[in-house]
């Protein structure tokens, strides 16, 4: 069953004909993802990668039946693209774009709040349900269909975890890259909740980093509602205070932002916390027995 995306998702690519959009749409299609077409304003009616191009997301929904979108639009237009997808009735919106102004996201978050949609990202690698659909920029081949769900704020660190899970003989149900920005749509807790309720997921890997309280919020939720083993890792144990570490959201402000504080809270909530990122896969295998 998986979560967020599967082989029946009808996907529209926003920023379809641009360099990034074209490259990754092609990879997604090659993986077997059901891409119905894309949106590039002014190029409606053309075809690209043998798929339809629409002027608006509304057209893609009404004429092409799209219910899922992935956004490769440049930062200055990406907030607008998210709102367009939400307004058009798209149910799952994944925004890959990095570098959206914070105040744009404040507005977007408020705008989509009462819309019937789920935003993943921005500044994320996307979502993949191995063997069914790749809605993102992750390398498809490292994934294997299976029963471990992965939630992460990072790109390549998620691939690292995926690879360890695959090498340990397990596979993944759905991997959700939630993004590294200060304001994102789906939080760690939201993603953990989706996977906890998914009958095809047996264990969850939760990868966080310094900054914010998302991991602590997820940990407290897991303590109350958890029914499956959760393995956790927090990147940035050695990060200095007050400096942004690559991701705009990765900055230590107060005491509870540190990796130590987050790991302590996670342990107290019954999560199997690993100190070394090299041990994520092995610890999951151990936790499942």
């Amino acid at each position: 069953m998986s979560v967020l995306v599967d082989k029946n998702s009808k996907i529209v690519v926003q920023g379809f004909t641009g360099k990034e959009g074209s490259f990754h749409a092609e990879q997604m299609i090659a993986y077997g993802t059901n891409v119905i077409g894309g949106v590039t304003p002014g190029k409606g009616g053309q075809t690209h990668l043998d798929k339809a191009v629409y002027n608006t997301v509304d057209d893609a929904v009404k004429k092409g039946g799209a219910n899922t979108s992935i956004i490769f639009v440049p930062p200055r237009f990406a907030g607008d693209a998210i709102m367009e997808a939400a307004e058009a009735g798209v149910k799952v919106i994944v925004c890959i774009t990095e570098g959206i102004p914070v105040q744009d996201m404040v507005k977007v978050k408020a705008y989509i709040e009462d819309k019937d949609c789920r935003l993943v990202g921005p500044n994320c690698p996307g979502v993949i349900t191995p063997g069914e659909a790749k809605l993102g920029i992750m390398p498809g081949f490292i994934h294997k269909p299976g029963r471990i769900g992965i939630v992460s704020r990072s790109g390549t660190l998620t691939y690292e975890a995926v690879d360890q899970v695959t090498k340990a003989g397990m596979g993944q149900s759905t991997c959700i890259g939630i993004g590294g920005d200060p304001i994102i749509g789906t939080t760690t807790k939201d993603a953990v909740e989706l996977l906890m309720n998914d009958p095809e997921t047996d264990g969850i890997i939760m990868i966080g980093e310094i900054g914010g309280s998302m991991e602590a919020d997820a940990a407290y939720w897991i303590k109350e509602n958890g029914t499956k083993p959760v393995v956790g890792f927090i990147a940035g144990q050695t990060a200095p205070k007050g400096r942004t570490m690559g991701h705009a959201g990765a900055i230590i402000g107060g005491e509870n932002d540190t990796a130590e504080a987050k790991m302590r809270i996670m342990r107290e909530c019954g999560i199997h916390v690993v100190e070394s990122p090299a041990q994520i896969g092995a610890r999951m295998a151990e936790a499942l027995g």
Binding site: S152, R153, S154, G155, T156, L157, T158, E160, G180, I207, E209, I210, F233, A235, G236, Q237, T238, A239, M245, G246, H247, A250, A259, E275, S276, P277
Partner: peptide
């Protein structure tokens, strides 16, 4: 990647 970079420092 920023996340992997922090994990590598760790």
């Amino acid at each position: 990647g920023a996340g992997l970079a922090m994990a590598t420092m760790d």
